[in-house]
Every structure is written in structure tokens, then in C-alpha cells.
Simulated assay, not measured.
Amino acid sequence: MSPPRGKIRIIGGQWRSRLLTFPERPDLRPTANRIRETVFNWLGQDLSDLTCLDLFAGSGALGFEAASRGAALVVMVDKDAKNIQALQENKEKLQAGQVELVMMDAFKFLNSDTRTFDVIFLDPPYRAELTDQIMPLLPPHLKQNGLVYTEANRDWVTDQQWRAFRSAKAGSVHYKLMEYVNHG
């Protein structure tokens, strides 16, 4: 049974089966359970001590899933005040102290924050088609051997700086786990 509209269920880790609520917005579509299950199988079920960045956090499905699976820090970035409010309510409900919320445009965040992460979740609104613009900004924010998860409604072709480590398609959703290939 799928959760009602405006709700999504965490599928693994310490908060397994807990419901998250989020505002119903035209561009807000949480990553489906089946896709999240695959992605976290790729990443490994235990993310202990890893740091994650959830750009375009939206519902927080990916970020809270990572936190549920033991991530030491999950930074969720979203510029929408209603999304941030819902993320804050979910953070409090779960007592997710390792989750940091940042209300800011993703580009401004990447240009102003100097931290590095083990995993970056990149799932911008499909109609905005921002993947090509964001990808070049990610390498300085990746730890050595860090990975980037992308999700889009088209098969985004990586340039030679990126290697698709894993990729799949579910319905019209194309998703990949990529690593940066350092040419320096």
C-alpha cells in the first residue's frame, strides 16, 4: 500500500516505515521507493560516518533515507520556504540531529560552502533541466572517492570528467551513480 499524497515512507535504517510529510508542489516529486531501494543498495545499506549533500532536497526522501542509514551529516538544501518548513518538522519528528537544513539556492550554496561530501544527491526539478549546469560545480565538494547520484526524466549523458558507476531506468526516470574522474 502506498502512502497518501504529500507523504512518503522511509524504506530502510533506524526510521524504516516512518512517514515523512511534504507540501504538494508542482515540481516536487519524491524519489520513488523502488528507485531509492536500488540507490541505497548501490551505496550500501550502512552509511555510517559518511557525509551527504542533498541539493534540491524537496521532500527530503533521499536525505532522510541517508540519515536513517547512519550518515554522520546530511546537509539538505532547498530554496523553497514551505519545503524547508516541512523538512524542519520531519527533522524534529525524527529527532534527526545529523540533518542540517539550508534555505538557499543550490548554485549559491555550491559557490559559498566549502565543505566536501562522500555522497551528493542531485535531483533538481525535471523541467528546470539543471543537471548540465550543476555537474561542473560539484568536484570541489566531493571527498576522494565521493559519488554523485543524479535523477532526471531523460538519459543525461555524462562528459568525460564523470564515469557512470551504476545506472538504471524506472518508467521515465533515468538515474545514475557517478564518480568524478580526476584528469589532473
Rank of each mutant, 00 (worst) to 15 (best):
E92Y: 13
E92R: 12
L94F: 15
L94N: 08
L94R: 01
Q95P: 00
Q95D: 09
Q95G: 00
Q95K: 08
Q95F: 10
G97D: 10
G97Y: 15
Q98L: 01
Q98W: 04
V99F: 07
V99R: 02
V99S: 12
V99H: 14
E100D: 10
E100N: 07
E100F: 09
L101G: 04
L101A: 13
L101Y: 07
L101C: 06
L101E: 01
L101T: 06
V102W: 13
M103L: 02
M103D: 05
M103H: 02
M104H: 10
M104K: 14
M104D: 00
D105R: 10
D105A: 06
A106P: 11
A106Q: 02
F107D: 00
F107H: 05
K108A: 14
K108S: 03
K108Y: 13
K108N: 09
K108C: 09
F109I: 08
F109G: 02
L110K: 08
L110H: 09
L110W: 15
N111V: 01
N111R: 12
S112T: 13
T114E: 02
R115S: 06
R115T: 00
R115H: 05
T116S: 08
F117Y: 15
D118M: 04
D118W: 07
V119P: 01
V119F: 14
V119L: 14
V119D: 01
I120Q: 05
I120Y: 05
F121G: 02
F121H: 03
L122D: 02
L122Y: 11
D123W: 13
D123R: 12
D123Q: 12
P124Q: 14
P125I: 11
P125V: 14
P125W: 07
Y126F: 15
R127C: 07
A128E: 10
A128N: 05
E129W: 09
L130E: 08
L130I: 11
T131N: 13
D132T: 12
D132E: 09
D132A: 15
D132N: 10
I134P: 02
I134N: 02
I134S: 01
I134Y: 06
L137E: 05
L137D: 04
L138A: 02
L138G: 01
L138Q: 03
L138N: 01
L138W: 09
P139E: 05
P140Y: 13
P140R: 14
P140E: 08
H141T: 07
H141M: 12
H141F: 08
L142E: 00
L142R: 11
L142F: 13
L142S: 03
K143W: 13
K143I: 04
K143Q: 12
